[in-house]
Design a protein around this nucleic acid. Sequence first.
DNA 1: GCCGTTTTCGGCCCGACTGTTTTCAGTCG
Length: 588
Amino acid sequence: MQSKVHNEDIARIFEKMSRVLSLKGKNRFRILAYENAARSIRELDEDLAEIAAQQKLEEIAGIGKDLAEKIQEALRTGNIRACEREGGKIPDSLLMLFEIRGLGPKTISLLHKKFHVDSLDDLEHALASDALGHARGFGAKKIAALRESLEAWTASHQRMLLGLALPRAEELVARIRKLPLIERAELAGSLRRGRETIGDVDLLVVSGDSPTALEEISRLPEVSRVLAVGPTRATLLLDSIQVDVRAVASESFGAAMQYFTGSKKHNTHIRAIARQHGLKVNEYGVFRGTKRLGGAAEADVYRLVGMPLIPPELREDRGEIEAALKGKLPELVQLSDIRGELHAHSTYSDGHSSMLEMVECAAAMGYEYIALTDHSPSQRIAHGLDRVRLRKKIKEMEKLRKERANSRLHLLLGAEVDILPDGRLDYPDDVLAWLDVVIAAVHANFNQSRKQMTDRILRAIDCPYVNVIAHPTARLIGKREPVEFDFDRIVSAAKQAGVALEIDGSPWRLDLNDTLARSAAEAGGLLSIAADAHSTAQLAYLRFGVLQARRAWIAPASVVNTWSWETLHKWLTARRPQRLGRSMKAAG
DNA sequence: GCCGTTTTCGGCCCGACTGTTTTCAGTCG
């Protein structure tokens, strides 16, 4: 049996084919057909192999007889002879040039033929020399624009982390809202849906004088570069993040928000339902024939197709439309439901803020409880606490509790304890008994087998002092793959034991991710949404965890840190061997 | 190359924007 051919492999072949054909100046609709097919395949949930087995390839939008046969061939042999023949002599490095903004088939073809540019490196050299200067179509501005595009691509060809992009985008929106010409400004796109990474920022504005408003936006100090400005649209760079600003009419604002928030799949599905009602939905509104029925408010769009407004975080076509039609949209946890933080560090381990600073910040945020969960000794780089230093921390915490006796904020002595490779915890039971909150986490030996890792985490869950498994898959977005384990077994063991699985809000982690968190919650498991804060400012990371939880359809009831102090306290102590931790008694 | 209440041929992704053009070509979303 041939090694498995994935949907993405076939999408790549078709994408390559469309680029090859465009370089050769072939029929533009044929080019478009391959492009559409590639996109259509990328949007599939099901494996092409399964669809092929059911003889249903031609039911996929954009796949006809010919492409269905080509897919069959790719599934059998791993490649498509006709596509290889067509693109045979064209190096992949040349096709990479399509990634550069401002380069299309004509220019790439010209660069290739006249200047022997076959790669991004070649392009860089050509742009650096003055060779292009005299060629037709290459003015000084064009060359400068290409230099900038190449630079921007190098800086940002990978997607940007939500937690880093969102605050920058929000600052920009706040700034834009203060401009006198601006009536409204809102973020749309994947940022609004809370996706863990984003490609660019979509921003909609309403103004009585759009052209001037867009000019003014382009001149804001936050904007590092202006790629394009016209009367209805501007493309800007905010650091290396591309921002697309669109000016829309007030009466179309809701329809435009709906359209530009996406996802594409969600919108396609909504439009299909609209068609069944004899309606047309686009970015300008909802129409029956030429009669405009609504579109000023986003809720208009959903109401006219017979459903309540769907929260942006759910708009991925993962069942939310069916749920909305049945009136069964889930109640989603929101930031204001959160009553405390169960994962935060202080200067005792690798945090940058003192216990006092962390506690004061948590009080200012209106929290009812905060656990300071510094690392255990195995985390040497993070200054994990041995018994002696842990005792010192307990003393300081008891002093803090006395000084703040009138505060409604409960201080919890916690630790983020390493789960050792064999599943034992990094503190012995007598030390664990000192703690009010134990969150256990994998921080090393990520490459164990699936079975070893499953047993390791199961053993940690078995320990009666453990309350939470922190960042369960240990992934770092774009940097470290999630560890492998039997997720269903972990979820069911955690549920049995009353152990919560964490949704870590740190922008680099967001762990559990949305799909895993959703299946944990659907199985009836408990979750904890945490900031994993290493400073007072990072306590705000919790909101990214909440966004992730909302994408996972999670209701407040299954999130332990939405619970009142009394309920949480009962839960924390429920599993413990009889003798209560002494600091918990002090917390009273 | 796909698609079909316009159905096996003849449409399909076109409007906005930039740069270099002297009335338009190329690219983007």
